[in-house]
Write a protein that binds this DNA or RNA. Structure first.
Lengths: 152, 152
DNA sequence: GGATATCATAGCACGCTACTAGGGTATTGT
DNA sequence: ACAATACCCTAGTAGCGTGCTATGATATCC
């Protein structure tokens, strides 16, 4: 009796890896230094105590998601694509970690079909968990966090 | 400049692996067949379409967490340690996946110290995410899910 | 034209997941 | 007694994702 073909998930889908953590730190740094001039990655890396080279790769994901713009050359760097008040933690999370999906079949984006969907009870549980997470991350803007930071 | 020593997280901490999914399915099966007699694992495996041998390992975790009791020998099997109304999804989740902790430093249990804790702004974000998840999983009992299942 | 900065690709050690394999032990029904 | 049933225990392993490092190319300003 081979059941190995029944595997539903091939990995891990709701998680916070260092990507999400570092990505938010970087975005927050850009938000705190938001202005006219682009901010070189090096200074972000130093302030946030991160590997500059690794950060390069991470910010590439943020650029791909159109959350930041880049300026090449000397005196170049990165700037937020929108104002801090128009960027949420959810935007950053999804850019770094993909869609919120405790389970593939309850992904907020392109949920994977499952032949048990009709009678799978636990599905509704993880869907509610997903909604709980989404509510939180979509309601917090970078501006909110900057304001919090100033209080410290 | 070696920054590799700064790694904050060594893995992945908030996730739903197949363990959590399968574990909840098994517990739900036990709840639906809750009564006097123990339920053999084989029948759970067949009904839920899971590998029996793998299920053995998973249910060992549930037993360790005192969520189920076992009866050995012929006609033996497993029974819920408490009534379905006294068992929550959170109980099952924690037995299978460990404490809810999007980040080690905001684990609901033994949070790991972090030297940036005082001024780390993103911390509060993940703490709120954690609370959102906890609220959901601790408020749903197995009895609730059985009732939902009957409606289908 | 060189210093500064972004961009692109490749590769790798490690740890975890999702199992499978193969046995052992306890209890029951006949 | 004894076989059948069911729980119990330890190893091992393929595959995958993470968290980097390494190397170099390309663009732009002064």
């Amino acid at each position: 009796m081979k059941i190995s073909s029944l595997v539903i998930e091939g990995g891990v889908f709701l998680r916070l890896s260092s990507r999400g953590h570092y990505g938010l730190k970087a975005m927050l740094d850009l938000a705190q230094n938001f202005g006219e001039k682009p901010i070189p990655l090096r200074s972000v890396a130093v302030r946030q105590n991160l590997s500059e080279h690794y950060l390069e790769q991470l910010i590439a994901m943020l650029k791909k998601a159109a959350l930041v713009k880049s300026v090449r050359g000397s005196q170049g760097g990165y700037i937020l694509a929108r104002e801090p008040s128009q960027l949420t933690v959810g935007d950053v999370f999804r850019a770094m970690e993909g869609p919120v999906a405790p389970l593939l079949c309850v992904s907020e984006e392109n949920p994977v079909g499952c032949d048990e969907a009709d009678y799978c009870i636990s599905r509704s549980v993880w869907a509610r968990v997903r909604d709980g997470i989404v509510d939180v991350i979509d309601s917090i803007t970078l501006e909110d966090l900057c304001r919090e930071a100033k209080k410290l």
